[in-house]
């Protein structure tokens, strides 16, 4: 918003306009300055420090030797232990995303095709678990799946015997799906709700079957939602720490937990820093691809 009329009524000259623009730019910068300063010091600087540490070496005393940069910490990605953890994390994050998609797509479709009054109430009931404390939601599953817990009691009563899926990868996936399902529902709902239903009507008028008009019209038009939702589920699942810690066992160490161990237990900061960088780069690449393709749907 650049004022085109000067306040005192004198004619607007290009010089005055330039000066006004400069003053405006200065004011904008000053408004941004507190946040910019804070984030530079407490976000950008930490980011640079992690990047530097990822090239450093751990010394014999558990400290870090900053001289003599090398790629050793990144080479550790090739070690079987780290590689297994990386593959397992990618695999579980992928499975979580697929399961979320399978349940969220029909759910969002149902939601988007309700009457507005019903739809708003249904949306509120999606928002409540979405905003509910994440730790508490994970803990609820710990109680539910526990030995002799409610689920076990239920399956025993039906005659299926005790269930013991706590501390297995299944429990981790269950917890991740529970935690991130709303991330899939909301963008899917947003993109399905926007569909011009006249297109679907037209296809039906031209004797397309329900399945054909779904495949040829609804699915392609809701693709932005599918992609956005998948990214929003996949990224946090890949870096998950709380869920695998609470619901997984020793054999299901994921990337997030492994990074934490490198810092708090193994005291190998360069290794932890390198893995954090890998996690962040994966995240950045996916986000950039997404924004390039379709930046406006979020």
């Amino acid at each position: 918003m650049v004022d085109t009329e000067s306040v005192n009524g004198s004619p607007v000259t290009p010089e005055l306009e330039k000066a006004a623009e400069r003053a405006d730019s200065r004011r904008g910068f000053l408004l941004a300055l507190p946040a910019l300063g804070f984030l530079t010091l407490f976000f950008a600087t930490p980011l640079v420090i992690v990047a530097i540490y990822s090239f450093a070496t751990r010394n014999r005393f558990g400290g870090t030797d900053l001289s003599g940069w090398n790629l050793d910490s990144y080479r550790r990605l090739g070690e079987p232990i780290v590689r297994d953890i990386l593959y397992r994390s990618l695999f579980l994050a992928f499975i979580t995303t697929v399961i979320c998609l399978i349940f969220a797509y029909p759910f969002s479709y149902y939601l988007a095709t309700r009457k507005e009054s019903v739809r708003n109430i249904m949306l509120v009931f999606v928002m409540i678990p979405f905003w509910t404390n994440f730790l508490v939601r994970n803990y609820a599953w710990r109680v539910l799946l526990g030995n002799g817990g409610p689920l076990s009691q239920a399956t025993e009563a039906v005659g299926l015997g005790e269930t013991s899926i706590l501390f297995t990868p299944t429990a981790v996936v269950l917890g991740l799906v529970y935690g991130y399902l709303p991330f899939m529902v909301l963008p899917l709902y947003a993109s399905i709700e926007r569909i011009d239903w006249r297109l679907v009507e037209a296809s039906r008028d031209l004797y397309a079957s329900g399945w054909t008009s779904f495949r040829k019209i609804i699915l392609p038009l809701s693709m932005p939602g599918v992609i956005a939702g998948s990214i929003l589920v996949f990224i946090p699942s890949l870096g998950a720490y709380v869920t695998p810690e609470l619901l997984g066992g020793a054999k299901t160490t994921l990337l997030g937990s492994y990074i934490v161990t490198q810092f708090l237990t193994a005291r190998n900061w360069p290794a932890g820093a390198a893995l954090s960088m890998v996690l962040m780069i994966v995240m950045l690449i996916t986000t950039i691809i997404y924004f390039r393709k379709d930046g406006k749907t979020l």
Binding site: V50, I235, P236, G239, G256, I259, A273
Partner: peptide
Amino acid sequence: PDVTMAVM
């Protein structure tokens, strides 16, 4: 990711 931010 949370973990990266925590580490940073």
